[in-house]
């Protein structure tokens, strides 16, 4: 198996998951609590990557973050290199592409927390932020963990968007799924078999973990 590609895939999935927890939690919290009419539009945008071909997302990212655009110049000024065919570019694309897989479970778990518990915390003097960390998050951790695991797995297996914005630069943008594609192209079926089996096993284990997490609501706390 292409160990360099494996390392890259794991690293990309880890960073993407971290970014999704940091960005996705506030977004999910907003979706779970807002009464704004904008909610439906935002929900639809978040869900788009589920139905959109990854190539479409990749195409728009390439166009939107092209070196001559304002966003592209900003990206280059920030990171010292242009967006296409870079690991950082891949990370941006991965975060957008896996957004629904993190935000939807986050939002479901957060909105499952009894509103009265939040109100009780407010009357006891806890600020909205303190309430989030002391009440909402501890009660929704299973959903947050499930979302993070799902986002990790989804990033591990992405192909189209990587090919569009990342290309196939070894050590920079060649992830496992790209390596698999190459192994098949080169008719190296033994290597392809190992890579595919690994991705299959990893995905299966992740889904088992997610389903187990969703079965058990605050297991450690309610059981005595």
């Amino acid at each position: 198996m292409d160990l360099q590609a494996l390392r890259l895939s794991l690293w990309l999935a880890t960073l993407t998951t971290l970014a999704l927890v940091l960005l996705g939690l506030p977004l999910a919290h907003w979706l779970a609590t807002t009464r704004s009419r904008l909610r439906f539009a935002v929900e639809a945008v978040v869900a788009l990557p589920i139905v959109l071909p990854p190539t479409v997302l990749g195409f728009y990212l390439l166009v939107g973050l092209a070196p001559r655009t304002a966003a592209g110049r900003g990206f280059e000024a920030l990171l010292g290199h242009p967006f296409p065919f870079s690991f950082a570019g891949l990370l941006v694309a991965s975060v957008l592409y896996s957004l629904p897989f993190a935000v939807q479970p986050f939002a479901a778990a957060l909105s499952g927390v009894d509103r009265r518990l939040v109100e009780a915390a407010h009357t006891l003097g806890a600020s909205p932020l303190a309430t989030f960390f002391r009440v909402t998050l501890p009660l929704a951790w299973h959903g947050v963990l499930a979302g993070a695991v799902l986002a990790f797995a989804h990033t591990l297996g992405e192909f189209g968007v990587v090919l569009m914005v990342g290309g196939n630069v070894p050590g920079e943008t060649r992830t496992l799924s790209i390596a698999l594609f190459e192994q098949v192209e080169a008719l190296d079926y033994a290597a392809a078999n190992r890579t595919a089996a690994f991705l299959l096993a990893a995905s299966f284990l992740v889904l088992v973990a997610v389903h187990a997490l969703q079965q058990r609501r605050f297991p450690r706390w309610d059981a005595r």
Binding site: R116, L117, E119, A120, V135
Partner: peptide, 11 residues
């Protein structure tokens, strides 16, 4: 405030 169902923090 005392809620009808007490709303104790379960965790």
């Amino acid at each position: 405030l005392l809620f009808q169902d007490h709303a104790l923090f379960p965790h």
